[in-house]
Write a protein that binds this DNA or RNA. Structure first.
Lengths: 152, 152
DNA sequence: ACCATATCGACAACCATGTTGTCGAGCTTA
DNA sequence: TAAGCTCGACAACATGGTTGTCGATATGGT
């Protein structure tokens, strides 16, 4: 048999891999003019997309609209989003990324591409593809509700 | 070139894999007499080991001793640990897992082994080993300070 | 055209988990 | 023995989540 490998290592390794990537991301982001960006910012900003409302953002992140509203407030304080009234619906307040917010997202994407390339250099394209394919098959797609997930 | 695969998928897949495993763990734990166990409990209990103090637990988890003390209080309320005075050092209060706490850890280990076996059936032993080996090489070992890590 | 219903954003109260800072009590060592 | 470190406790606060409530605004059925 091959009972050698204990199962509990798997989740720890996956989490460590995630943490390693996000740590590296924010290290690079800090050097590129975003020293105060935090993991949550990226997630939420990604979910904001080209413009949303608090209620819709809440649905995307899997949290209540009140929680989303607080997140938006934090994102606004950090200068990553701005709010504007919706002319077609007086109830809605649309949240859009600022130029700085779009810069954060663009740099994040570039850094993640670079990080993947580093993994390919260290592990080989095959190993990285294996990881991506295997996790893609097992997890039925990535979820965006990460920040809140842990204390659940 | 092979720029096809965007780098941002990697962290999301790793996180999704972690979440999938932990979700499955707690689904099974709930059926085995631990319905109120939460991810944090397992992490902290693992860090408690055979007996520790709040300050030491804080160091292991990478949080302040105050935060560790609150965690211990929660773990105690859930019935997973008990506190006892240390006869050799009147300052210290030793925290030990209860029988129920040890049961939680034993079941968790067994469930994780089972989950790994399921992954092997779905993905093949090679893919799982590749994931473990690759992440082990890149991450320089799993970290135990997961619960607090996100909001940092 | 109107009214019932649903949705939006805001506010309040609360919980959980972390943080600093402070404190008295108890070890340890110079 | 006195200085200094460590332990656990307490208070005050920040953050990010929750429910519950509310007034204002759309929307759809009669």
């Amino acid at each position: 048999m091959s009972t050698e490998r204990p199962g509990f290592a798997l989740p720890l390794l996956l989490l460590a891999g995630f943490q390693t990537l996000v740590d590296a991301l924010h290290e690079d982001l800090a050097e590129q003019g975003h020293p105060e960006a935090r993991p949550m910012h990226g997630f939420a900003l990604q979910a904001v997309g080209e413009g949303t409302t608090a209620a819709e953002l809440g649905r995307r992140l899997g949290v209540t609209k009140q929680a989303a509203a607080k997140t938006i407030a934090a994102l606004g304080t950090a200068g990553y989003v701005e709010r504007a009234a919706d002319p077609t619906d007086a109830r809605r307040v649309v949240v859009r990324p600022t130029a700085r917010g779009r810069d954060l997202l663009a740099r994040s994407a570039a850094i993640f591409d670079d990080l993947r390339a580093r993994w390919v250099r260290e592990l080989g394209e095959d190993a990285v593809r294996t990881i991506e394919d295997a996790l893609g098959r097992i997890t039925s797609g990535p979820r965006l509700d990460a920040p809140s997930w842990f204390t659940r």
